[in-house]
Amino acid sequence: MTLWENSVLGRHDRKEYAGGLGALAIKKIKALAARLIRDFDVRARNVSVDASTLSGGNQQKLILARELEDDPVLLIAHQPTRGLDVGAIEFVWTQLLEQKGAGRAVLLISAELDEIYELSDRILTLYEGKITGEFHPDVAPDVIGLAMTGGRRGDEAVR
């Protein structure tokens, strides 16, 4: 799928992007894509390139741009920086913090402890499908490690 096709995924069924005969309003979608890649600094030759040819960082930027376009109340970011280079990670982090600053709820799911410490206000650990602890980000990593692996020190949680 091209970049413009990707940029409309999830809102392709809206009236504003519908042409006649069940067709898509391609011009409008391309304009949307052009705006998104400009606002989020997605580096691509044009909106008709295959999205799969972008680097991981630019793909992630595109996704962020697409998902933030609608002003969501809640943003769920699942492993948003996995496989990205340092520059792209920086960008994603900044974006997520900006979203938080703009008053959106951000749920970050990550296997990177550093990332979690860097971005979170509250940290929840899960073990076997249950929340085993809730912590403040100044908690020591070994406490979190223990809670993640099912250990019982939940009383240290900051309520």
Partner: peptide, 8 residues
């Protein structure tokens, strides 16, 4: 249809 961005 016409490309909206000039190709390099």
């Amino acid at each position: 249809s016409a490309r909206t961005i000039t190709p390099t």
